[in-house]
């Protein structure tokens, strides 16, 4: 029993250990890595990715996958920017309504995504990937390929105003992380995600409306993608079709590296936080220690494999697909 317990404990805490080891490694290579200002920079690059990754965490816990984030983020960013500018262009006016509008849009896109998956019985992988393309196409249709600048000083305060060294967007991200944690642990919906992911047949046999849980999960994920979109626009002050680019890779990688299993039922939003930080610490650290650009992608891939090996308990899995 003793060894099993240690193994479980190790797997549980492995992502955090990986993160700490990485931070110590980069700090040893380049002392300037270990500074408040650099941690704030890592925080800025992590905040939008964390929101998107939390959204997909719920889906992965259910044992499904959602690949629509790039399209959803672009659509939310673009609609937010259009509405924000049309309604006054500053948070001090009614234009603040563009913020909840973006969340609603994200929820609707997620809802459609979930309905396509459940009602048309298309595997979530394919349904969400297709919805992602639809989203990107729709964003392109709206913008015609142009970029929309969001210049409002109040909104850009997300990036420029700092409390205790960290910009506001980091605190917004933490607030939504806590909301996600609440949903995961304190609501029926959150616990149902685990029920579906742990054993869908069992959940169904117990009288759970699995389809409803799935659709709700996708809608919830859409709302978190929208928060990610708002932070991404806050970070660079531009909304465009390319706003969603790269979020798919970063978010899925982060969720898996953080120890949430792709087969569902295991993991949670705190794992995702650690995963996002691992990926962003690696990205930042490689430039900071001056690793040549052409080896960075390779090193990132190798580190991701290493992190997954350390942080997931693969003994309980009989086969991998």
């Amino acid at each position: 029993m003793g060894t099993v317990l240690t193994r479980e404990l190790l797997v549980k805490w492995a992502p955090l250990i990986v993160l700490i080891v990485l931070i110590l490694f980069f700090a040893a290579m380049e002392p300037r890595f270990f500074s408040m200002r650099n941690f704030a920079r890592i925080g800025i690059s992590s905040a939008p990715a964390l929101m998107v990754a939390i959204g997909v965490t719920f889906i992965i816990i259910m044992g499904s996958i959602d690949l629509s984030m790039e399209g959803t983020v672009s659509v939310c960013a673009v609609i937010f920017a259009f509405a924000f500018i049309a309604w006054g262009g500053t948070l001090a006016s009614v234009a603040w309504l563009a913020l909840p509008l973006a969340l609603v849009v994200g929820g609707i896109v997620g809802l459609i995504n979930g309905l396509v998956h459940v009602k048309l019985k298309i595997p979530s992988f394919m349904a969400s990937l297709a919805m992602g393309f639809v989203g990107t196409g729709f964003a392109l249709l709206l913008t015609g390929g142009d970029r929309i600048r969001v210049e409002d000083e109040l909104f850009r305060g997300l990036l420029t105003t700092r409390w205790f060294g960290f910009p506001i967007m980091c605190y917004v991200a933490v607030a939504f992380l806590l909301i996600a944690w609440f949903i995961q642990t304190r609501t029926t919906l959150g616990r149902n995600f685990y029920a579906v992911g742990g054993g869908e047949d069992l959940a169904h046999a117990s009288g759970l409306n699995v389809n409803r849980v799935r659709v709700m999960g996708f809608a919830l994920a859409g709302v978190f993608y929208a928060v990610g979109a708002l932070l991404a626009v806050g970070r660079i002050g531009i909304a465009e079709t390319a706003t969603g680019s790269n979020f798919m890779f970063v978010s899925i990688t982060s969720v898996v590296v953080g120890g949430t299993a792709l087969w569902g039922g295991i993991g949670g939003v705190w794992n995702t936080l650690i995963g996002v930080l691992i990926v962003n610490v690696i990205n930042n650290g490689m430039v900071v220690i001056g690793l040549p650009g052409y080896v960075q992608d390779g090193v990132l891939g190798a580190l991701v494999i290493a992190a997954v090996v350390l942080s997931t308990d693969r003994k309980s899995v009989t086969f991998v697909k």
Binding site: R41, N284, V287, V288
Partner: peptide, 13 residues
């Protein structure tokens, strides 16, 4: 976005 992150890391280094 990538430029944004690379520049941040340059500022640290």
């Amino acid at each position: 976005q990538k430029a944004n992150q690379v520049m941040s890391a340059f500022l640290t280094r």
